[in-house]
Simulated assay, not measured.
Amino acid sequence: MSVNIRVANAPVNFGIYAADRAPFTATELLSALAEAGYEGIDSGPIGYLGTVDTLPGRLADAGLALAGGWIDLRYGAEDGFSADQAGLEAALDVFTAVPVPDPVFAPRPTLACPDNAERMARPGIAYGTVEDWAGFAARVQRAADRCRERGLEPVFHHHLGTDVESAQEVEKLLEATDVSLCLDTGHLYLAGGDPVAALRDWAPRIKQVHIKDASREAMERTRAAGGDFAQAVRDGAFPVLGTGEIEMTEVVAVLQETGYTGWAVIEQDAPETGREPAGLLADQRTNREALRKAGL
């Protein structure tokens, strides 16, 4: 196990974003993930794990740290971006309320785009959707600067079905800003990229890693049937670690080779499947063991 990399989990693995009702309370989920061997957790929807007043105590009771959390901002237009600032500030209030003994493992505000309906309908097919890249990048930079003003280093998360999906779009954003990157192995792979090569090429900018396995075979099957991103998730585009097409030992090896330090967050983009909570938790135990066998 690396002393420079700690492994976290995330509420998205339990369908928290999609479900009308979470399968676990915050306290139940934190306790279960700590028992499964995780050292940290992503926030999930702001407020789910707790508020400024309650989250620090819940994390301390479970022995977990906060790895970061997702923040959607509409970078494509000034009016939407301005309207989203309140959500950014609310998230930063929560993140900065949590004590951080080691700055290397401070929570990373995860800056992301909202869903793009056209791309969600045809995920992983690279075509441009940003008309004003200069304005888009400038607003990403402003969001990153605000996070730093609040004492946290943000990371930008590329994602299938959004305006920044392909490796080429990631490169374009990195060239136009100084924002750090959250490299997501599964989303990059299904967008046609090579996550192992990207971990090397973008190493100086990578400040967080989201670990996913992925299946292009499942994605292609979904596309052929006319399915969208949500259907691809249901069809197994993001299987448990070790059962897809990404070689996790290579991912871990290049993280160690490049000297990455920080959080490795296991994410699986779980759908609202109606599965029993015990089955969802069993997947995350399997994921943790698979990453341990790979070297983390």
Rank of each mutant, 00 (worst) to 15 (best):
R146S: 02
L55F: 06
E289N: 12
I5E: 01
A198L: 08
F156W: 08
R288Y: 08
L181I: 04
R221N: 12
A290R: 13
E171A: 14
K212I: 04
P195F: 05
C147W: 10
G63F: 07
D145C: 05
A22N: 07
L30F: 07
E276D: 14
D283S: 11
Y189A: 09
G236R: 06
S43P: 02
V155Q: 00
R285L: 10
P195D: 11
I266G: 08
A90G: 06
A22L: 04
T129S: 14
G226D: 10
L190E: 05
A264C: 14
Y17N: 12
K293R: 15
G244H: 03
D84S: 13
K293L: 15
T129M: 13
A203G: 08
L281R: 08
A10H: 13
A134D: 14
G87I: 00
A214Y: 04
A230P: 00
I46S: 06
E245I: 01
D84G: 11
N116D: 14
A117G: 03
T110S: 12
E118Q: 12
N13M: 03
V7T: 13
N9D: 12
Y17Q: 11
D132K: 05
V233F: 09
S43H: 15
E131N: 09
R275G: 02
K172G: 02
Y189Q: 11
L66Q: 01
G244L: 01
F24I: 11
A62V: 03
M248Q: 15
G15W: 04
V3A: 15
E28A: 13
R58G: 06
I46A: 13
W263Q: 08
Q85Y: 07
L281F: 08
N287M: 09
D84K: 08
A137Y: 02
G76D: 08
A86G: 03
V52F: 05
D93V: 03
S2Y: 00
R292I: 07
F105G: 01
A282P: 08
Y75K: 10
V254I: 13
G124M: 10
Y38K: 09
R234Y: 02
E257I: 07
D283A: 12
L66S: 00
M120H: 07
F24N: 11
L59M: 14
R150K: 12
T96N: 10
G44Y: 10
D184A: 05
L183Y: 02
V233H: 01
